[in-house]
Amino acid sequence: MTIDNSRGAASGVRTALVIGGGVAGPVTALALRRAGIEATVFEAYPAAADGVGAWLGLAPNGQEALRTIGADAALHAMGEPTPAMVMADGAGSHLASFDGFAELPATLVLTRAQLFRALTDHAASEGIPFAYGKRLVTAEETPDGVTAHFADGTSATADILIGADGIRSTVRSVIDPGAPAPEYGGVLSFGGYAAPDCGVDAAPGTMYFAFGRAFIGYWQDRDRGLIWFAGLPTDTPQTPAEVAQTPAADWLARLRDLYADHFPGKQLLHHTGPEHLMAVGPMERMPSVPHWHRGRMVLVGDAVHAPSSSSGQGASLAIESAVELARCLRDLPTPTEAFAAYEALRRPRVEMIGLHAAAANKVKAGKAQAGPTFPDPEEMLRPLHFHRIDWAEPVTAPA
């Protein structure tokens, strides 16, 4: 299959192969469409990944990036607006609180599956084509573009190829066989639903974070009661499949032992049954990736800058990067220049956020102590949440 279209961008790019149909893939295709580039999304799995993944927060900056490409309407009917946060220690002592920025929309708390479905449905309604059962094996540049070869024996050719295929990206290894692998954060992640009578108070619209010998976060969901997420420190990483081999009751027993002296972890876990435990898997992040692009191939989202869930920014950063990549391809004369400008615009921000998340991971894993004073949430969140991409502003080549 060869994608062709009479429109194009300043870079001369008219068509794109987007590898990966998660969150970053549909947004990248939508942003490229607005930049005058037609894209097809290729997903390895035979069907859309409904029901896969845990909860996440879509921060105001991520929502604004979606608004830039007209995709924010897809989120209006879902997600729990959660503007406020409260931070405490494991004994219940208050450390800090934050009521949100009055000028910004509230962070939306929703499942990854909800976000994925909303974005995929919106992209499909806009005419973005999706091809399922297309697991990338390799890709090669041709005189006229780049050709992707899939495990089912088919191939596709377009002007550029974009790797939106997640933290275990195949495209990343095609661009650079020596690229780093995901970095384990020393924690296995779990979540669950606690019974409403668990004795833990939580105001609607507020996210709570309780630190101590172990960390637990929780909030009040309008439909499911109290939802919590927590970590089990361990030096031995396990894949999600390996985690799933251990019975939920065994994991819950280990978590209850870890949080036996923790408030409110003890109460939340005591009132959670094995049937309501979600074993997410290892907490991971991408270390600095030396090569974001090569020739006509480039990376976006978790494939190049997964910051780990400690950042609260994974989905939002992926959406921002998709929009910036489309702007660069729209305005600069060649894919090489566009990719270089995109990396220059994005690398400092995503690596700063990733390093802060890595430090938080060490605290959660018991490998470092929290600082003597807790950071001011408003000061910490302002550079994250107020970040804006001006779609109308022309992109210039980096010095």
Rank of each mutant, 00 (worst) to 15 (best):
S321Y: 00
A315P: 06
A322I: 11
V171R: 08
H122E: 14
V243N: 13
P237A: 10
L252A: 11
I160N: 04
A365Y: 02
V41M: 06
H293C: 12
P105S: 08
E351Y: 05
M87F: 10
T373F: 02
D121G: 11
R388L: 02
L226Q: 04
P377R: 05
R294E: 10
M283A: 13
R256D: 11
F150L: 07
G36F: 10
A59F: 03
G371H: 02
L66Y: 06
R168P: 01
T170Q: 14
E379I: 05
H385D: 13
G312S: 06
F101N: 10
G205P: 08
F150I: 07
A322L: 05
T336V: 10
D165W: 12
F209P: 00
G354N: 05
Y193R: 15
P274M: 12
M207C: 03
L355M: 11
C198R: 06
Q245A: 15
L119D: 08
R254D: 10
S321H: 12
M1S: 14
R346A: 09
R7H: 13
S189L: 15
G314F: 06
G186T: 05
R327Y: 01
G100E: 07
G191R: 14
D250K: 07
F190L: 12
D376V: 02
A344M: 03
D72A: 15
S11Q: 04
P129E: 03
D4Q: 14
T396P: 00
L277R: 05
L258D: 05
A29G: 12
A131Y: 01
G178W: 01
A124S: 12
E126V: 01
N361K: 00
L325C: 09
L258F: 02
F116E: 04
F215P: 00
S155P: 01
A179G: 13
D197K: 02
A248D: 15
L58D: 04
D390T: 07
H291Y: 01
P196S: 13
R254A: 11
S309P: 06
P307K: 07
D144F: 00
I162F: 06
S173F: 14
L161G: 09
A29C: 10
H149N: 02
Q245S: 14
A74Y: 07
E64D: 14
M286T: 12
D72I: 11
A24E: 01
A151E: 15
T107G: 04
H293W: 06
A48P: 06
A260Y: 01
Y193N: 09
F209Y: 14
L268I: 11
H293Q: 14
L136F: 04
L317N: 11
D302Y: 04
T236Y: 00
D201C: 00
L30R: 13
A151I: 10
L252R: 13
Y184F: 15
G57Y: 02
L317C: 08
M207W: 11
G79L: 10
A248K: 14
D165S: 10
P237W: 03
P177C: 10
P177I: 09
R347P: 08
V300M: 04
D376N: 14
V323M: 07
Y193C: 11
P233C: 01
G145I: 03
V350G: 07
